[in-house]
Nucleic acid binder design. Structure first.
Lengths: 174, 174
DNA sequence: CCGAACTTTCAATAATTTTTGAAAAAGCGG
DNA sequence: CCGCTTTTTCAAAAATTATTGAAAGTTCGG
């Protein structure tokens, strides 16, 4: 396979992955492009590489900066901005976890807490069943949230070493 | 808060969560409805509870069955089908992990492997850098994949106990 | 088989999301 | 302040995705 073909293929695949996970396809493609660019790229570079309009490029670059996945840079003597992506994928994953926890996990936990406050006399079976379901959900989602919190506050090596112990234990217990 | 209001609120929130994660809003709402329904529900029940058309209900119920999150049931003497959701959220999470691993993680791993086969003589800096980036990505995505594999082959208790040890260790090392 | 009860399909329509491009704003050197 | 370059905004258009509802299909008791 040729390099250009490989790059194109990767950018497309990353875009598809993104859109399956609720991330704008173009945003994911810009991210992919910058991930594999050794040099930082200007808005123009991105526009021509992906065949998108200026407005589109601008909006999605901003969104990536907002997610903490891309940063800007100024080259001396140049007026235009250049962009580059965080290349360490562990950092990327951390950042995505931080943002999604903030944007989605926290809000749903809030709602779960709120709806748990439903009025329910002990003899209202339906309400009791509802509260049970919600409590159950709250437990798991809360556990997942705490797990992710540990994950993002961990060093990559610490994290994978710890997990390795868990895996080894699992293999042993089979 | 009243029970009906709480139910409504939960259904809406679950729908929003779903759509942020690339899952059709209605599909997530039907799932939410069934999660908190002690009784199984017919297509009609779902249509009227969520104010959606027959076709929409049917399609999304099928999709939920496809994801392994909902099952059908036949009540004796009745012709129509009734649907109910898996209530154990740990099972739900497992099922979602299984499906997403199959639908999204595996394909991206395949692409990463393919593009890693790009031609690159040692002196083609650009190609070498590309291969490096991809290898890096492949490592982390592969690690995540194996972690999820362990997760879905684990008992809930085993899993959380193991993680607890990891957490405790982390706390100690602080 | 028939007809009633229910389910599935799918072309048309609606709603939502994304993209465009031109205009406005901002930054900068002189 | 001016003129030039670059960035940002945002209303309109395009593209995509979801929904409807009527028609076709299926199932089943009699």
């Amino acid at each position: 396979m040729q390099l250009d073909e490989a790059k194109e293929k990767f950018i497309q695949a990353w875009g598809t992955l993104g859109s399956n996970w609720g991330i704008n396809r173009t945003m994911a493609q810009i991210h992919a492009l910058l991930l594999i660019s050794p040099e930082s790229a200007s808005a123009e570079d991105i526009m021509s590489a992906l065949n998108i309009s200026r407005g589109n490029a601008n909006m999605n670059i901003r969104a990536l900066i907002d997610w903490g996945l891309v940063q800007k840079e100024h080259k001396p003597g140049e007026r235009r901005e250049y962009f580059f992506a965080e290349k360490d994928i562990w950092q990327v994953a951390q950042q995505v976890i931080i943002e999604r926890r903030k944007r989605e996990l926290k809000p749903i936990l809030k709602v779960l807490e709120e709806v748990q406050a439903v009025e329910a006399s002990t003899d209202d079976e339906e309400a009791v069943a509802f509260k049970d379901s919600i409590e159950n959900l709250n437990n798991i989602v809360g556990q997942a949230d705490r797990f992710l919190e540990i994950t993002v506050s961990s060093e990559r090596n610490w994290f994978f070493e710890s997990l390795f112990k868990v895996f080894a234990n699992k293999a042993k217990s089979k």
